[in-house]
Design a protein around this nucleic acid. Structure first.
Lengths: 129, 129
DNA sequence: TTACTTGCAAAGATTTTGCATCTGT
DNA sequence: ACAGATGCAAAATCTTTGCAAGTAA
């Protein structure tokens, strides 16, 4: 049995960092930021807390193809753009394609509960170079 | 400078396995199959060859959220279904959503060259249990 | 006090790489 | 013979875990 979670300054701060960060940071990136203000934090514990936050449904864990887990605050379903040059991941401001889910449910016998869309290409920053 | 690639029975066989396998196998899965007929193959070399095949554009490397790279023969753009229970990945028979790319190009200043869509849920097999 | 949290280090898991040997051309 | 391909083992990366000490309630 697990008791209700205790409040932890570290975990709350991790949640804040992920919420405010628009780059969908990796555990390492969160650790680098956190370490500046809490020099004794351990990377292992950042992983642990990010997993807990994901279990609690406060953040989401995603993977955009480079084999490294990234985290995203929950702000409703949205899509992503992945730059193939600098590997950055940003939100993509396209409206929810709800018709796609409907279409998918019609043509498949699997139970479909969600979907995700990614766009790939070269981001503005990389184009300038 | 790199010379033209030599033919390698192992690499060709790996390509064949990935082409015929509908489960989008991981390197380990390909290795397990290959080892039965070529007992001396090394996992490291399977990784090496899959990377080469991907560089040559003969297969594609994908990641469906569990942190393990999976490989897919190139058979044109198509979408995928990921079972959240058994983690299997199967092709999803939905027609290409070309209007999505057009829409995406209109609303973003990034250069968009591709997209991918995944559906999530519970597959038929898992539902039977 | 009790049980969750943390830091640290060790262990796991996946993937890459160095090197000597083998092999296709 | 030459340069790519292979097997092996070691290393590199990313992530998880055990444990003793710390801390919120």
């Amino acid at each position: 049995m697990s008791n209700p979670r205790r409040k932890s300054r570290q975990r709350e701060r991790i949640f804040e960092i992920i919420s405010k960060d628009k780059t969908h940071p990796t555990a390492q990136a969160v650790y680098d930021i956190l370490r500046k203000e809490m020099p004794t934090v351990s990377l292992g514990n950042v992983y642990r807390n990010m997993k807990i936050l994901a279990e609690e449904g406060r953040i989401e864990c995603r993977n955009f193809g480079d084999g490294i887990e990234r985290y995203d605050a929950i702000v409703g379903l949205h899509y992503h753009f992945v730059c193939e040059q600098c590997k950055s991941v940003t939100d993509f401001p396209m409206a929810l394609q709800s018709d796609i889910i409907g279409m998918a449910k019609k043509i498949s016998s699997h139970t479909i509960t969600g979907h995700s869309i990614q766009f790939y290409g070269i981001c503005d920053k990389c184009k300038q170079k």
